[in-house]
Amino acid sequence: MNPGLYIAQQVINAISLGSLYALVAIGLSMVFGILRMTNFAHGDMMMVGAFGTLLLGFAGLPFWLAALGGIAIGALAGVIVERVAYRPVRGAPDVSLLLTSLAVTYILENLGILIFSSSPRNFPLPDWMNVALQFYDGQLTFTQINVVTVVATAVSLGFLGWFVTRTNAGIGMRAAAEDLQAAQLVGLDVDRLIVVAFAIASAFAGLAGVLWAAQSGIVEPHMGFTPLLKAFVAAIIGGFGSIAGALIGGFVLGALEIFIVAFLPSAVSPYRDAIVFALLIAFLLFRPNGLLNRSQEIKL
């Protein structure tokens, strides 16, 4: 096997996985940036987005329309959770917000079990998405899902970049993330900016949920848990609270996970997650502000 092609293949895999981590981590960081709160229910918006897509698909919508609808449902769910659960406890000690988000996680996941049962369901895809593209006699292989993942992530990131630098709301959001009190003092409508942050963060999680389900082929109520943990690691690697940091952290983590399995002896592969979480501890100890050195003070 051509080593160059092997490396290229792993890089493709890393970008595809990193895209998902980045999508989830960005939302986690955005909300943390403004509210200084780790939103554990963030991963569940993946589940909401994927189930939403599934239901709209059953209702007869074509896949891409069902996926857009699922993402919109995810965004809406995030906004509702903020309004109903988080806003009333804003201003309470930080631990209240944290516990509230854990409670929301339990409620959403159990709601998912109640409606869809806890057994995984198939996530039907249009046939063209499962087509594998092969190059160099199959030495370089990826599916259309990988292509869709990378393109959808790139478009979303482009939108986000435009939003936070070119729109007044985006500038306001960055201002609020830096100094919430000063933001109120220059007249920014912080309540509205928080809603916007939740809407975008949850839409990103919803998109990640659809892509995750498309890659794994299944949907289940706890599907958001592992990606949430990974996104948390990614956000800390990049510098918690920084959008650019979460983006970089997501891709670094994706690459790390793929490369551990691809380039290290196979005896090491089972320890992939252990290595990742050891890295998390190392970052928290030695570089708590992340690669970009931009982290806000972390309160758990």
């Binding site: 500038i171 960055r174 201002a175 007249g187």
Partner: peptide, 19 residues
């Protein structure tokens, strides 16, 4: 002072002007 230090000079003013 209590500026938004990570924002650009113009962005600091824009943040306030949108009120």
């Amino acid at each position: 002072t209590r500026l938004f230090k990570a924002l650009s000079v113009a962005e600091n003013v824009r943040a306030a002007a949108q009120l």
